[in-house]
């Protein structure tokens, strides 16, 4: 079933929350108040919201170091996320995980992962657990692995797809194809049966979904910048997984509007390419859609302001939160 029209404003607001979250981090990062790496997902909010919203609260999710959007859309609180960015005791991982390891077991978020491809078998393993607990079928719970197209050249990607296929695991594989593997165009590093010309976005991109199809996994490519399309694709895949019909691979075409990380000089693409992509990014797209449904610019601005307030509250919460104590470094190693 499609995403209900009455939920579209909420989806717009959720995507704005993710966008404002990343913008706030960029600001704090430039002030030297955030340690380590930050890999923004700006431009990819449609994939995150479409995918997570099509899951149940008790379904599992693994994502990547570019996974702030997925984590927030699955239900991680912006306060706990921002506090984690600032290394506070109130962060989702008490300051031990940081930007690349957002985890919230209470919403099924198994964790973002800083090793490319490594989270894919974790989702598959959670799906296997559900299959075992369901006595060979599924007990109704499924798992989704979100990863970038850069992961499709990792061995563990292929190993996991094979295991998913032979064991018919209730998994959804969402490949966010943002055209760039770190700081190299993916078509230069990824063999594919076909390269797609992605029109206004970029010159070419490898089609990764055919790799999944080669394992006998139902695979398709969708417009990841259209949150409704994304939602529908994952919703259908979830239905198949819950019915015991196995995995689905969804290659979600999207675009990374910012660099790979803070400080990326972006020598691999032109400013014109990025500005063209801005016309097709998911928030602009959904804004146009809502206007077509009668929403005014003022109405959209109100949703954006609400998102801004959520993030301002998260930043304030994080700033006012206590630092972890040095001795806290020595807990949480073992259960």
């Amino acid at each position: 079933m499609a995403l209900a029209l009455e939920r579209l404003p909420e989806a717009y607001r959720q995507m704005q929350i993710i966008r404002k979250f990343e913008e706030a981090i960029r600001n704090l990062y430039s002030q030297g108040r955030i340690r380590g790496s930050f890999h923004p997902c700006v431009g990819q909010e449609g994939v995150a919201v479409g995918a997570s919203w099509a899951l149940r609260a008790d379904d599992f999710l693994s994502c990547t170091y570019r996974g702030h959007g997925h984590a927030l859309a699955k239900g991680l609180s912006p306060r706990a996320a921002m506090a984690e960015m600032l290394g506070k005791a109130t962060g989702c991982s008490k300051g031990k995980g940081g930007s690349m390891h957002f985890t919230d077991a209470s919403v099924g978020l198994l964790g973002a992962n800083a090793i490319v491809g490594a989270g894919i078998p974790h989702a598959a393993g959670a799906a296997l657990a559900m299959q075992l607990q369901g006595g060979g079928g599924t007990n109704g719970r499924i798992a989704l692995a979100a990863f970038g197209e850069g992961a499709v050249n990792q061995g563990v990607f292929h190993e996991t797809l094979n295991l998913i296929a032979i064991w018919k695991l209730p998994v959804i594989l969402v490949c966010e194809n943002n055209l760039y593997s770190e700081m190299t165009p993916s078509h230069e590093t990824t063999a594919a049966a076909a390269q797609i010309a992605a029109g206004p976005i970029a010159a070419a991109s490898p089609q990764t979904y055919q790799r999944a199809a080669a394992y006998g996994i139902a695979a398709r490519q969708v417009d990841g910048n259209d949150v409704e399309t994304m939602y529908l694709a994952v919703e259908e895949a979830a239905g198949r997984a819950r019915a015991g019909e196995g995995a689905t691979y969804i290659e979600a075409m999207t675009y990374r509007l910012w660099g790979h990380m803070m400080g990326d000089p972006e020598v691999y693409r032109t400013k014109e390419e990025v500005s063209q992509a801005r016309e097709n990014e998911p928030i602009v797209r959904l804004g146009r859609r809502l206007q077509g449904l009668g929403w005014t610019e003022a109405g959209l601005a109100r949703l954006e302001a609400e998102a801004e307030a959520v993030i301002a509250d998260a930043v304030q919460f994080a700033e006012n939160s206590p630092l972890p104590k040095p001795e806290d470094a020595f807990t949480d190693v073992f259960a």
Partner: peptide, 8 residues
């Protein structure tokens, strides 16, 4: 487990 602050 550690990176999750003990949640898993």
């Amino acid at each position: 487990r550690y990176m999750a602050g003990g949640q898993v």
